[in-house]
Simulated scan of single mutants.
Amino acid sequence: MIECDDCLGGFHLKCLKPPLKEVPEGDWICGFCDARKLGREVKLPTPPEGKKRVRTLREKLLSSDLWAAHIESIWKEVDGIYWCRVRWYIIPEETVAGRQPHNLRQEIYRTNDFADIEVIDDI
């Protein structure tokens, strides 16, 4: 899958017109956003009756329904419990000079905050 850098919509490579064989380097804009920028009227596809569109993990993260962390290390204690050390990421809350407000929803920043967390096996 590929995600549009403007609307954050997810698309299967083979479902695009024309289909893509691999994810292109750099930013990618979907046909809907491209058409909207050219001033064309765009009708987005709607989910089937009784279904709703599933949000991507990135959309959940940016709406603060998820936390973002990078696992720096993982280890097993003598009692058999696994732990990991994570570095947290944050979403910027405001723009600074030179940044476009619409780019905020695409950005997360690495912090200096670390935490040791017990790994819970829910499987």
Rank of each mutant, 00 (worst) to 15 (best):
M1P: 13
M1N: 07
E3K: 07
D6H: 08
D6M: 01
C7I: 09
L8P: 00
G9D: 15
F11R: 07
H12F: 08
H12V: 00
K14F: 07
C15W: 03
K17V: 15
P18I: 01
P18N: 05
P18C: 03
P19E: 02
L20F: 02
L20Q: 03
L20A: 05
K21N: 13
E22Y: 06
E22W: 00
V23G: 01
V23I: 15
V23S: 06
P24L: 04
E25R: 13
E25H: 11
G26Y: 00
G26W: 00
D27I: 07
W28V: 11
I29P: 00
C30M: 10
F32G: 10
D34F: 14
R36F: 13
R36I: 04
R36E: 15
K37L: 06
K37A: 13
L38N: 13
L38C: 07
G39M: 10
G39R: 11
R40G: 00
K43T: 11
L44H: 08
L44E: 09
P45H: 07
T46C: 07
P48C: 07
P48I: 02
E49T: 06
G50I: 10
K51F: 13
K52T: 12
K52A: 05
R53Q: 14
R55T: 06
T56Y: 04
T56R: 12
T56D: 09
R58T: 12
R58H: 13
R58A: 11
R58V: 11
K60D: 13
L61R: 14
L61G: 05
L61V: 06
L61E: 06
L62H: 15
L62V: 07
S64G: 03
S64K: 15
D65H: 12
D65N: 11
D65W: 08
L66T: 02
A68K: 09
A68N: 05
A69P: 01
A69H: 04
A69K: 02
A69Q: 05
E72Y: 03
E72G: 00
S73Y: 03
I74F: 02
I74S: 15
W75D: 09
V78Q: 14
D79L: 05
I81R: 15
Y82T: 07
Y82V: 08
W83I: 06
W83C: 03
W83R: 09
R85V: 08
R85G: 04
R87D: 01
W88E: 03
W88K: 09
Y89D: 02
I90H: 10
I90M: 11
I91K: 15
I91M: 09
I91V: 15
E93M: 11
E93I: 04
E94F: 09
T95C: 15
V96I: 13
V96K: 10
V96A: 05
G98I: 08
G98L: 04
G98K: 03
R99D: 11
R99S: 13
Q100W: 06
Q100E: 14
P101L: 13
P101D: 14
H102D: 14
H102W: 12
L104A: 05
Q106F: 02
Q106L: 14
I108C: 12
Y109E: 11
Y109A: 04
T111F: 05
T111K: 04
T111P: 07
T111S: 09
N112W: 08
D113N: 09
F114S: 05
A115V: 01
D116I: 10
D116P: 02
D116F: 05
I117P: 04
I117C: 08
V119K: 01
V119P: 01
D121F: 09
D121K: 09
I123M: 10
I123D: 13
